[in-house]
Design a protein around this nucleic acid. Structure first.
Lengths: 198, 198
DNA sequence: ACGGTGTCATAACACTGTTATACATCGGAC
DNA sequence: GTCCGATGTATAACAGTGTTATGACACCGT
């Protein structure tokens, strides 16, 4: 079945063009004509491959989460083995690094930066799985190892996530300037609060 | 000088129309023709009063922070007197309440929801003063009263702000569901970490 | 009364997403 | 080999957007 591979390849090609345009000109520059020109075709490309701009926005949204998940995995590569809370801090560091390095993607994923687009419920769930899923697994490992204490892995993971996300979001909005020491303190706060003993 | 009052009144009227359209149709429905029609005039209104859509976006952005600051003050009305950390939790509760009640404003303020618009540096500083300023004052009062301990009021206030903001942002993005108990836990976390004694 | 200033509505421009239409290309049937 | 249907593409047109230029009108100081 070479046809479906061909179709997938064309989808990937247009998606990469869209990602390139997004990185270069920001969400405002994401026009179908600009993307099509970058991909070397006509506007119809987006309609045959994605069914329109919302479809492409959905694909771009998912791609953003895929890249964020990849960045989180990379941040984990130089971290201590599972069960060490430092792994959670490492994930958080990768998270803020991604937000700073790919602000346009970050806006599309969390900020309604594409005018008409709101991600479908299933798409948000999929994106959460790629990223938040890693965090839950690491938190669970720490709970199992006894290096952290919480009523549930999900609860503590949500706390860690929103803490790091708040830092990344406010910094991206130009509302907050954070040096490395402050970032470190932020990453540690939800962990210190769930150390064993108390 | 009745003229300048008249001009300010017209600005306020158009701004209220814009806020109404924003609340009804979301950021995507914010078109100059729609706003002008709601205000009972022509597109030129926005150009004579605000110099174009970016100018109106800037005013709308500031208005959002004004309303958020007002919501925070209202949340403080039933709180204990200054120096009690519960006041900070009350501010946080008002913050997430505003984000839930005015998601369109919240997107404009923190999510780049108006296509071409990025707030000017001075505008962000002004908005931060209306909202973050309150938080810093309350944190400073707690430090003075000895009910909280931190190296600086600014550092702890930033920590509280980003924590609450992360919760509001992720919830608004459909990424996280938080019941009242979880919200309470989130609000308490940065405060517990800075209790005296340790 | 007059000229100047400023505000208004209208119309036009370039741009956007979307849709309809026509053209080209391909794979199979007879 | 020749047709046929189907599919993908490019072009052009549509309604909508922000913006700008144009002309009409009211107001104000001289």
């Amino acid at each position: 079945m070479p046809e479906v591979d061909d179709l997938a390849d064309r989808r990937r090609l247009v998606l990469e063009s869209a990602a390139r345009v997004l990185a270069e000109d920001g969400p405002h520059g994401l026009s179908l004509r600009r993307i099509s020109a970058d991909a070397g075709g006509s506007t119809q490309l987006v309609y045959t491959l994605f069914g329109g701009k919302p479809g492409l926005a959905d694909a771009l949204y998912s791609e953003g989460f895929r890249r964020l998940g990849e960045a989180m995995r990379n941040g984990l590569r130089a971290a201590p083995p599972a069960g060490d809370p430092d792994r959670i801090a490492a994930i958080g560091g990768a998270y803020v690094g991604f937000a700073k390095q790919e602000p346009a993607f970050f806006s599309v994923m969390f900020g309604r930066a594409i005018p008409g687009f709101t991600p479908a419920r299933g798409t948000t769930a999929l994106g959460r799985e790629c990223t938040y899923g890693q965090l839950v697994a690491e938190v669970q490992a720490c709970l199992d190892a006894g290096t952290l204490v919480a009523s549930s892995a999900d609860q503590l993971a949500r706390l860690c996530w929103l803490t790091v996300h708040g830092l990344a979001s406010l910094e991206g909005a130009g509302m907050l300037s954070a040096d490395d020491a402050f970032v470190e303190q932020v990453l540690r706060t939800p962990l210190e609060a769930h150390r064993p003993r108390g």
